[in-house]
Every structure is written in structure tokens, then in C-alpha cells.
Design a protein around this nucleic acid. Structure first.
Lengths: 315, 315
DNA sequence: CTGAAAGCGCTAACAA
DNA sequence: TTGTTAGCGCTTTCAG
């Protein structure tokens, strides 16, 4: 009967038909768990995300696209933004699943740099440490940071603030480095008073923005470390009666769907999030199948998308 | 050693310490699969979604909230909007997982009405059939449809179009029934030419809207069967040079985050999506634990949220 | 071609 | 208190 299910040799046409009939009759489906335990191949790819939010959602869509036609199934594990177990839940999940429930995993939870699990291929998206031992998909955050800042400079802005991202993330650091580099290249000093915390949290960013914008010598432009932050900045500005982009230009980073829909639509550096998900799955499948690993550190390029939240500075 | 892990009686302090040390040393974690196979309790709740899109994402957030502190883990299975297997993938997944990998499941994939799996509690969100045999969470779509339509009537509109939702979904039908009912109550006939297909698909809805709005006797208001549809309508109107809400009022349904961010922000009927996710998990946990099932068909109420996409009709 | 049996990693029950 | 064993549902191997 197992032979029938798995299309193996050594079954007479008669038995085959009979067994098939009964299987249909009973609506039988093999237990995934028992299969997993026996075969070590499961044809399931796990994606571990820290939380369900716009970035991870976009990434999941890309991953879902990529998985189609590969014969793999997709299972998403969300830590649900939990706090109690900040370190190592990735590792714990991974070891519990590996070898059995999943053939490989994509880690979208960037806070931990783990050395891979022995038998289980893992691809990290935008990891903590930058180029780790693990295969990695990320995007060119350094260049993106420069692009955003240069755009504002080209529009005539000189007092350009930065709302930073999470300090523990390499990607956020690189965006800041790009910002500083662009100012330096333009021969401008960095006014440290214009660099404020954002942590990629809407609340924190909004608070920083409110304080910043209430100061007498406020900036004419803000580069926000991601779109969530940028949208918070726009809202804070509007609360204070400032118009965007007339009184304040805002540039974001990420290009989540919300950035095109907010008011006004956000000029942002496009990180190809869906493609990152796509590539991550693609790479992982290749690793699982034991194909030649070509390149295991893929950096996708970033691009500026100009929308209505910026325009030339009018003096 | 199993006893150590599971905190069972009959282990000396000495052995406990030694075993614990080795476990730490090796970074051991019990295999979820083997555990599942042995114990039939897994402490995992599965959520099956048809696709990763704004509605299911919102719902997942609510579910993730609810799961905290219950001792359950959350695993999401996405069909990835697949087409080849339109019927019954839910059933297939469910039978493959049930009794082993998950203790229960939430179905967010509304297209199929299945009778429950023997041993596995299942809660359906917004199901195909309305009040099925399965425990159900939904919202008051009928009332919501009335609310939306009555709002437009109160603003003075008389030519109110409807872009419908997916025909196979009870919820979409109810929104339409609410629309027709409100018009009838106001003593207005339904102009069938103003009722167009949307299928909850942005492309289809946009095309319907473009045709509708190009006709000589176009409506002054549109009730869109969900927010995705409504945003598509707004974009179509803007393409044609119509201003929203000056030339066309638009009301949506669902209240996904995008509806507050689109331009102009969308007046919409609020379906408490997050709460639906929350309630679904809550109910499921209760069923799994064998608690008294109180009420297994929960209908949450809907409310109108007025934003800038509607305002009184100016003749 | 069909039936029986071992074993995947784990835990509950039992024997020592 | 510790060590041993059966068996969860499946597939693969080997004997009939």
C-alpha cells in the first residue's frame, strides 16, 4: 500500500486499483510527521520570521512565488515578536525542525548570528553580522544610504537629519554610513544633533521626529532608516502643521507597499524585498539539492524611487 | 534523560545536573517530529491561509497576539495562491497534519466547506458557506453592507455603484445583499448596470471601474466589496481625471492598514480583522483543551469608519 | 508480486 | 533511582 502511494514497482494493476479505491474512499493522506521521521527528506522549506510585519510579509510573498514548481512546500514559523526568549529561538527552532520537518530554512530574523546546523542548509536574509559563515541574501544598504542622501543634496537640502534604525543590525549601520559618506563627499560636516534614534519602531521614530522638528533650527529634510520610520516622520510633521514636502522632505528605505500609498507617497530607496525572498528560496533549494553553490553571498542592488514626499528645496 | 527534559519524577539531583550539562554542551533540542509522533499532543496550532495578502496578514497578527501565553506555538501554512489544486488542499493539509503535527487548526482559506477531521478541532474564519458544521468566526457582513450604502445615501448620493467580491464567498454575497437592502429601504430600485464584477482582484476591479466610470451616466459613488477593490477604484478614477471624493465617493470594506494610508484615506467598513484572528485562536485553544464550547459561531460586529474618500454630495 | 519486519527519535510504562 | 523496551505511522528491505 505504501508502494501504491509512492508509485513503486512490484504491484499488480489489480491490487493497485483496489488499493487506490480504498484510499480514495477513506480520504486517506499519509501523515507528514511519520513520513518525515522515516525519510529524512521532507520537501518542506521553513521560513523563520521574527514577526509578521510589512517587511517579512513582502519577503514571504517573494518566497511563495519562488517555491512554486520546485516541489517544495512552505511553512512559516513566526516568533510573534516575542521578548522572553530574545536570543536563540532561531537556533532552537532550527534544531528541533532540522533533519526532520524541514529540509532547509530561511532566516528572516536577523538578530542572531548562529553557525549553521550540521545537516540543514540555511540561508540568512539581511543578517546581523553582515557576511557571516551562513549563505546570505542582502541588499546594498551602503549604496542605498548614499543614494537617499545624495538625492536630498541634489534637491538643495543642507540640513538633512537622519532617523536611525536598529543599532544591532548591520543593514541599519550601513544606511547610516552611506548617509555620512554622502555628506562627507559633498564637503558637509555631520551635525550630530540631526542624528536621532528610530530603532525601526514607529513610536520611537515619531517621538524623535517630534522633538527634532520642534527645535528652532530644524532640518529641511529627513532621511529615515526605513519606510515605517519615514511614515512615522511624515505623520509627526503633519501633526506639527508642517507640510510634506513643502516644509520638510522625507526619504525612506525599503519600498514596502505602504510607502506608495501613504500621503504623500514616499520617495524611498527600493530594496527589492520580494526578490530577496525569491532569491533566498532559490539559493536554499540549490543547497538542499546539493547543486553547485555558485555564489552564497548575494547582494541585490538598491535604487531610488522618487515620489511626492520630496521636491526641490525652495528657499 | 527524557525524564530530565520533561521534568519528571525519579531523577537524582546529581544525574539531573550531569544530564543537563551534557544537553547544554551538545545544544540538544528534542525533535519536534518524533515528539509529535509519540505524544499526540504537540502544542502547535496551525493556520492555513490561501495566500499571504493584507487580510490574512492582519489576521495572523491577531492570532500571534492571542497565542502568547497560551503555551502553543504558531505555524502558518500558505497555499501560495496556488491554482492547480483549487479544491481540497485544506483538507489534504489538515489530514496530513492532524493528530500529529498540530493540535488544531484555523482555516483562513474560505473556498471549501469541509466537514471537520475526526480528532482535530478546526475553526474556520469567514467560511464559504456561512454557518457550517465547523466552528466559525466571521463578521456581520450584511450589516456592514447596509452601513456602507446608507452612509452614501445619507451624503445625498443616489447613483451608487457596487463592485462585487468573489461570488463563491458568502461574505461577499452578504455585502451585496446589504447594499441591495439599503437601497430598497430607501425606496430606490437597484440599477443592475451599476453592479459590476470585482472578484476581490485589483486588476478585475480596476477594469470594471474604468468601464463604469467612462459611461455617460456614471455613478457619483461606489461601494467596493473590499478595500483592495476600493483602492483599485480610486486609482482608476484618478487615472480618468476624476477627483475623489469631489467627483466620486468611494467606500471600502475590511479596514486593512492600507486603507488608512491610501490617497485619499478610505472611508471603509471596519471588519475587526485582528480581533477575528484573536478570537479564532482563543476559540480553538478552548476546543483543544476540551473546555466548554460556549458559543462556536462568533460573529463580530462591523462599523463604519469615515475618512476622506467620501463627503456630502455637492450638486 | 505480496506479506512481514525493522527502525526513524522520542516517551511512557515497566523491570531491575 | 536507573536501565530497558514497546510502539507512534510510515517506508524500505527482505523473505515468502
Amino acid at each position: 500500500m505504501s508502494k501504491v502511494l509512492n508509485q513503486r514497482y512490484g504491484v499488480s494493476a489489480d491490487t493497485f486499483a483496489r488499493v487506490t479505491a480504498v484510499i480514495k474512499e477513506m480520504g486517506y493522506e499519509a501523515s507528514l510527521v511519520a513520513q518525515s521521521l522515516r525519510n529524512h527528506r521532507t520537501n518542506v522549506i521553513g521560513i523563520l520570521v521574527a514577526d509578521i510585519e510589512p517587511f517579512s510579509t513582502e519577503l514571504l510573498k517573494g518566497a511563495a512565488d519562488a517555491i512554486r514548481g520546485t516541489g517544495f512546500e512552505l511553512v512559516v514559523y513566526s516568533a510573534g515578536g516575542r521578548i522572553g526568549d530574545p536570543q536563540g529561538w532561531e537556533h532552537r527552532y532550527l534544531t528541533r525542525l532540522s533533519g526532520t520537518l524541514v529540509d532547509g530554512a530561511v532566516l528572516v530574523t536577523p538578530a542572531v548570528d548562529l553557525e549553521g546546523i550540521p545537516g540543514t542548509p540555511v540561508v540568512a536574509v539581511d543578517p546581523h553580522t553582515g557576511r557571516a559563515a551562513l549563505p546570505t541574501i542582502d541588499s546594498d544598504n551602503l549604496h542605498g544610504g548614499r543614494l537617499a542622501t545624495e538625492h536630498l543634496l541634489a534637491l538643495g537640502h543642507r540640513r538633512i537629519a537622519l532617523i536611525t534604525g536598529r543599532e544591532d543590525l548591520k543593514s541599519a549601520q550601513q544606511r547610516e554610513t552611506g548617509y555620512r559618506g554622502a555628506l562627507a563627499s559633498a564637503g558637509l560636516p555631520v551635525d550630530e544633533n540631526l542624528v536621532r534614534r528610530g530603532d525601526y519602531e514607529a513610536d520611537i521614530a515619531a517621538e524623535s521626529a517630534r522633538r527634532l522638528l520642534r527645535e528652532p533650527d530644524r532640518p529641511t529634510a529627513v532621511f529615515a532608516a526605513n519606510d515605517i520610520t519615514a511614515i512615522a516622520v511624515i505623520q509627526a510633521a503633519q501633526e506639527l502643521g508642517l507640510r510634506v514636502p513643502e516644509d520638510l522632505a522625507v526619504v525612506g528605505f525599503d519600498n514596502i507597499p505602504e510607502s506608495a500609498l501613504c500621503t504623500p507617497p514616499l520617495t524611498t530607496v527600493q530594496q527589492p524585498i520580494r526578490e530577496m525572498g525569491h532569491r533566498a528560496v532559490e539559493l536554499l533549494v540549490r543547497l538542499i539539492n546539493g547543486d553547485e553553490p555558485t555564489d552564497t553571498h548575494i547582494t541585490l542592488s538598491t535604487e531610488l524611487v522618487v515620489r511626492q514626499s520630496t521636491r526641490p528645496l525652495t528657499p
